[in-house]
Amino acid sequence: MSDLLTVTDLTVRLKMDSGMREVITGTSLSIAAGEAMGLVGESGSGKSMTAKAIARLLPDGAETLGSVVFDGVDVLALSGDELREHRAQVAVVFQDPRAHINPVRRIDDFMTESLRTLRNVPKGDARARAATALEEVGIDDPAKRLRQYPHELSGGMLQRVMIATALLSEPRLLLADECTTALDVTTQAEVMAILDDLRRDRGLSMLFITHDLELAGAVCDRTTVMYAGQVVETRAASLLHSDPLHPYSAALVDARPSIASTADRLRAIPGRPLSAFESPSGCRFAPRCSFAQDACREHDQVITELDGGFVRCERAIELRGKVREGAHV
């Protein structure tokens, strides 16, 4: 499989009042055509910033190092019409549809806007395609919905509108940024099922950002785990759960409540999540890691291949198969 998207050694610094702050350090990941990649990690770990860098939506004054190559094109160097064309090929499904859809324009206008402006599709055709797309995401009476305003639709319905709209412009990569977080649990499941189906039907690649490890495991082929602005592990989604390589991934898996067993309390990772710019030198997870040794804190960790995955931990081989027990100590 050839890679549709390759992110190599991406470092992002944002302009803050106090100067430039690093939010992502040397992130690398790749997504093949038709592949779904999960991106998990705590808040502030750099998941969303990675997606924003790929879609070129970073805030003004952001500094990027490294490279993002999409279909052979260096994304970070694009500007003007080429940049807009890149954005049209990478559709983003945002977390909060209510904030991300213009409240004063009709659903019709929201859905058909790119088709009309970028692809010169006549209004009638665009509307017909929008109606079909709404049916595909399970919305009844699309003609009526198209005439309505966002505030007249429920959150779950709006997120379906967002997904339908994202697919309408026939993108090649879908960036789903915690697209079900704002919805209630039953709606989450429905929306997720629709997104998964439609993506598979079309053979679309997807970067799926979530806090939910199990959800990532269910819909993604591989999962990348980020911590403090770095990728700490990339592994087949199904294996990450049962056989994680990095102590942090293991701790994340362990922090999940299980439906099968009862526990008095959930296991938490001691300490608090750090951002890239406040992390210590050496292994960034070391202060919270139960396997950390003096050597871990002394030098930066590099990412290495292990058992079909990638891991950023120098003790990974030594700890093979034991990381989950360690989290129990």
């Binding site: 807009r84 090929q89 945002f94 324009r105 806007e113 402006t117 970028l118």
Partner: peptide, 24 residues
């Protein structure tokens, strides 16, 4: 955020400003 959505869809800046920023 909805302006960011419009930008993320690759719409020309003039359209984003006219149809989303100024309209609202």
């Amino acid at each position: 955020e909805h302006v960011q959505t419009a930008v993320s869809r690759g719409l020309p800046w003039s359209d984003v400003v006219r149809r989303h920023v100024l309209r609202n």
